[in-house]
Amino acid sequence: MRKLIMGIVEFREKMLPQYAEQFSKIALAQTADTLFVTCSDSRVVPDLLASTHPGDLFTMRNVGNLIPPATPEGDSTGDLSEASAIEYAVLFLKVANIVVCGHSECGAMKALYARNPKLKAPNLDKWLCHASSAAFRLEYEGPLNDKLKPHDQLSQLNVLVQLEHLMTYPIVRQQVTAGALVLSGWWFDIASGNMYAYERASRSFEVIDRALAERLAARLVSRAR
């Protein structure tokens, strides 16, 4: 806790002068164009990984980067927090992108893969049910990348499942169909520091190097026309 407190002081004394103008501009409203859904894991730092600044990302974090699916009427089948964030991002911020970002060595995915009833964490156990279809796919359909550890294989499949859950929300589905919203699946490898994007053509997560970044950006431009 002391490190956290002293970090606040260091930011105030050294970094705040650099961001003062930025904070002044965004003080009354935010104009984020992306909802970034990722895990609560302390090793995943969206603004650091994407070189973004205050006001750039509307971020939703939870254990396992999960999104409870919606009913046909658009009501969440799980916690209301995630559904509320989706509604706010799509209806009020009118984001053009939603990214679901999983990561390596995810504790939630390890727990789901182990299926250990002795954990004595009933709330976590219930929460992880929103990733159960990813575990089913891993067992019966196999991984996207068989070179990864089993829990990392599960983590990648989980990203795809959560994208499907997003599409159960009518407001998301409508915007995607209209071409006003793009859904993307990313996966962060902590050990290497590399971010990967899911590519449907290759059915795999490919590292976001400059070449892939330019292709992804070009697609966004073409969809916006």
Rank of each mutant, 00 (worst) to 15 (best):
G179P: 05
Y140V: 08
L128H: 04
L160G: 06
N158G: 11
P170L: 10
Q153P: 03
V159P: 03
K126H: 04
N158Q: 03
M167D: 03
G179Q: 09
L124D: 06
L163G: 05
H165F: 01
K147V: 00
L181V: 00
E164Q: 15
S155R: 03
H151C: 08
N145K: 09
L138I: 08
L160N: 06
D146V: 14
F136E: 15
G179I: 09
Q162S: 08
L157E: 06
V159Y: 02
S184N: 10
L183W: 02
V161L: 12
Q175M: 10
L181E: 01
P143A: 00
L181A: 00
N158R: 03
V172A: 03
L148I: 09
A135H: 07
L124A: 14
D146M: 12
Q162M: 02
S132M: 01
L138E: 10
L157F: 03
L154W: 05
L144F: 11
L163M: 12
H165C: 04
V182I: 11
S155Q: 07
L124V: 15
L124W: 00
P143C: 01
V159C: 09
P143Y: 00
P150V: 12
R137Y: 00
L183D: 07
Q156S: 08
Q153E: 10
H130L: 07
N158C: 13
R173Q: 13
E139T: 15
Y169E: 02
V161R: 08
E141N: 14
S133W: 01
L148D: 11
C129G: 12
L148V: 07
V172C: 07
L138P: 04
L183I: 05
H130S: 14
M167K: 15
